[in-house]
Design a binder for these strands. Structure first.
Length: 451
RNA sequence: GUCCCCAUCGUCUAGGGGUUAGGACAUAUGAUUCUCAGUCAUAGAACCGCGGUUCGAAUCCGCGUGGGGAUGCCA
């Protein structure tokens, strides 16, 4: 009987929810749901100086937006509350006391402060700190589910100096609280970024000191910029908080970042969240860092948009339209489904349908009008008045014969018509346009068209 | 500096001793359509380098090189 899987995503609220953090959360989520386990959201806010209140909200809203629901933590409660490290000092005190009793920690002068480059400034030591005494028993090996076996020599003291676990002000360092919480919250699998690999050895030492079996570890590769550099706040796509307003679908983003460093080992690429849960396994996670390609992310978004039910698409896109100054009308809603396959981002939609309410002529396209444009429009207008029962389709049907009868290509009539009715060179089918506008408006727009 | 990890088309990746090295994004061309998008078809595009093991290496091993990470009273 295997034990119940318990995982956690443990971000620190120091900025915003980063795309890399989102993927760490996602891998934890997928693995946990696949295993039927429990997913804990824990906030690592031990560093009060860097603590940012808004960042906390960004984590919750970001995860909620992605649909990564957690089972314990903020808003959910749970048997191991509180889930904020800032509220768990008594727990850490208790564990620290154990270390004192075991003689595994010792008080010593605080290290020197560091400058902006990370270099030590001599003579800036203030107060004392407590360090954890590492066991020096040679090479330690970490059995990582993604990276395989990794070894570090703990006899090399220069490379593995005893770590500070308690600050001058009495607060505790990440390593201590992280391990204590993982023990207390009975975490069985730790899935986190590769930047933690070296920390894991420190954590293993702590588990050993407390006499607790450590969790299984899986370190996932980092996400880099297209040029291979580290992704930071300003880089394109870095902040998850921007995704909703840019018109990304949560499922598309989930799908895209799941494929960054993980592969289902098949040719399929577009998946729902449920499919991802089914297919996911830590064994199929890559070991190499992946570069973030916003172009493919948009393509993925388009794929998910195209798969939306038309009513759903309309519902999602209306807010973008009203934000762009359009009015939510039945006429607008009628036209929207016709552009569903045209957009990569929901935010692009208003530009495709604004002609319903706003008529603006594209300069560049106006310049491409042929000399016979006016003539073509007049011919069409006259014929349009004779249509017994108006419909977009009926009006559309007369265009081809009309063009033929006048010895011009269909396009020679379609293009001026499109420009007169929508002001744009590209858009929904002319039949859709004429259906939405109705005969009177079609004739009016032709009449006022400046050509 | 020291330690750790990584390396297949421009990008995400599949493959993992014998393959025409496969797919997707992007790019180009063609078909379809009133335009755009979509769809379909086609094309170009990769095993970092050098040694070794082997009948045979992109694949295994070693060494380089390149990239990333870690070496904090950050997490």
């Amino acid at each position: 009987m295997s034990t119940h899987v318990r995982t956690r995503f443990a971000p620190s609220p120091t900025g915003y929810l980063h795309i890399g953090g989102a993927r760490t959360a996602l891998f934890n989520y997928l693995f946990t749901r696949k295993m039927g386990g429990t997913f804990v959201l824990r906030i690592e806010d031990t560093d009060q100086e860097r603590h940012v209140e808004d960042a906390m909200k960004a984590i919750f809203t970001g995860m909620s937006w992605l649909g990564l629901d957690w089972d314990e933590g903020e808003g959910k409660g749970g048997d191991y509350a509180p889930y904020f490290q800032s509220q768990r000092k008594d727990v850490y005190d208790r564990y620290f006391q154990k270390l004192v009793e075991m003689g595994r920690v010792y008080e010593c002068p605080a290290p020197n402060k560091r400058d902006k480059n990370g270099d030590e400034i001599p003579g800036t030591s203030e107060g004392t700190v407590w360090r954890f005494r590492f066991k020096r028993e040679g090479v330690m090996t970490l059995h990582d589910m993604v990276c395989g076996d990794i070894s570090v020599d703990y006899n090399n003291v220069d490379n593995t100096p005893d770590m500070v676990v308690k600050r001058t002000d009495g607060s505790y360092i990440f390593h201590l609280v992280n391990v204590v919480d993982d023990i207390e919250m009975k975490i069985t699998h730790v899935i986190r970024g590769e930047d933690h690999i070296m920390n894991t050895f420190k954590h293993l030492q702590l588990f050993d000191a407390f006499g607790v079996e450590p969790p299984v570890y899986a370190h996932i590769p980092l996400i880099q910029n297209p040029d291979g550099s580290k992704m930071s706040k300003r880089d394109i796509g870095a902040q998850l908080g921007n995704y909703p307003e840019e018109g990304f679908l949560p499922d598309a983003v989930v799908n895209f970042i799941a494929l960054l460093g993980w592969s289902p080992k098949s040719d399929d690429e577009v998946f729902t969240k449920e499919e991802l849960i089914n297919l996911f396994s830590l064994e199929n996670v890559n070991r190499a860092a992946a570069k973030f390609d916003i172009t493919k992310c948009k393509w993925m978004n388009q794929q998910h948009i195209m798969r939306l039910a038309p009513e759903k698409f309309v519902e999602l896109v209306i807010p973008f339209c009203t934000k762009a100054g359009l009015v939510d009308t039945p006429q607008l809603r009628e036209v929207l489904p016709s552009v569903q396959t045209k957009v990569q981002l929901l935010s692009e939609t208003p530009a495709w349908v604004k002609w319903v309410q706003v008529l603006e002529y594209e300069e560049e396209s106006m310049a491409k009008l042929q000399e016979n444009a006016r003539e073509m429009l007049d011919i069409f207008a006259e014929a349009a008045q004779g249509i017994a029962e108006w419909s977009g389709e009926a009006a559309f049907q007369i265009v081809k014969p009309l063009a033929k009868a006048n010895g011009v290509k269909v396009g020679a009539m379609m293009f001026p018509l499109r420009m007169a009715l929508t002001g744009c060179h590209a858009g929904p089918g002319i039949d859709v346009v004429m259906q939405a506008l109705g005969r009177d408006e079609v004739l009016r727009r032709i009449a006022i068209f400046p050509c």
